[in-house]
Design a binder for these strands. Structure first.
Lengths: 191, 191
DNA sequence: ATTATAATAGACGCTGTGTTGAAGAACAAC
DNA sequence: GTTGTTCTTCAACACAGCGTCTATTATAAT
């Protein structure tokens, strides 16, 4: 069940399938990715696929889960603090991480998958939930979190789709400003 | 091609199919909705379906387009001004409209469809684009719009999923505050 | 080298697809 | 109402992909 314990062949097979899926998702929506095409692209026998996954969806979900876990681990290592006022530095770290794995995130956040990964990220944000929100009632807190995460995730997605041209520091500053001070604080072309 | 010109039978058929799709989307992801099941649920012959649509996806896309057009028409009638500081009153109108058609929007924005409708709404917002953003460079403007629309749409989605319990006025105020003044303005349980 | 396990090839019935042609029913227009 | 048109139905079609299975081969772990 767990990744690290499998034998060499298994890891190879799964890696090939993951790569193939990312590749196919550049062009087709996940719903149009057939087991056949996936296995062809991976150079894997169709029977073998079923030894590991139930469907392309299943594979995609597991990839999301892995990426999410990896992200959480990274955030832990960097000791990123979403609590208290989120520092620009922390956000910048996160953005750098995203840019580093741009192809994967672009795939998982892109239009060819579904909302699920965005929800996954929302969940992460909730776990690390902003301390400053704890004074709100539950309903409001949920709305605020949703607003913040959805806004950020979608901006990040656009940033990645556009090739992540801007520097993480620049994006971090923009996000922080919008988040904490609102559009009102942005009057005029800031910089 | 256009809806209004079709004969009575056509309108009946399409209405039945739309209702059936909304129904099926309560439980299944769009990718799992087969033409067969859709036609069974609608009480329509499978051949007939292909006379009007290419696939369940196609049907869903057209529904989204219709809803979007209807929304734009409504916004026009209400003379909603997203330009200048968006008034709470305008936003409240929009939210009331959403609540009024809650079942449909919940379906179109929910987890069983894809990002497309959210993008559609982003497009609408861009057309009515906030005047106050025109001073920004193109890239920043896109990010700001993305942030604002994604945040709002996702909050609205959660609101609808939860049964739209809060009053539109309350939600409008919350959104306006988050949008223009940021999370910093929300300290403490406001009301 | 032995053993265990993974990957392959090929076949199976099944379900859904998209199209077709002929027959029937409902409609709009007169 | 009758007429001609258009829409819907029904049954059948070849075709794609699915998910499972068995026997066989290949390869990693010990």
């Amino acid at each position: 069940m767990r990744e690290g314990y499998a034998d060499q062949r298994v890891r190879m097979t799964q890696a090939l399938l993951k790569t193939a899926l990312v590749q196919l998702l550049q062009q087709n929506h996940i719903s149009k990715v057939s087991v056949r095409a996936l296995c062809d692209a991976a150079g894997i026998n169709r029977s073998t696929f079923y030894l590991h996954y139930q469907s392309p969806y299943d594979l995609l979900e597991r990839m999301k889960k892995e990426v999410a876990e990896d992200l959480v681990r990274y955030l832990g290592e960097q000791d990123v603090q979403l609590s208290k006022p989120m520092s620009q530095r922390s956000l910048q770290d996160i953005l750098s991480y995203f840019r580093q794995k741009a192809a994967l995130f672009r795939c998982l956040l892109g239009e060819n998958t579904d909302f699920a990964f965005q929800r996954e990220l929302t969940g992460i944000a909730q776990i690390m939930s902003l301390k400053s929100l704890q004074t709100f009632d539950a309903a409001t807190k949920l709305y605020v979190e949703t607003f913040a995460v959805a806004g950020c995730v979608n901006v990040i997605e656009r940033w990645l789709q556009g090739g992540a041209a801007e520097e993480p520091a620049h994006m971090a500053r923009l996000l922080i400003d919008m988040l904490f001070f609102g559009l009102g604080s942005l009057e005029g072309p800031g910089q």
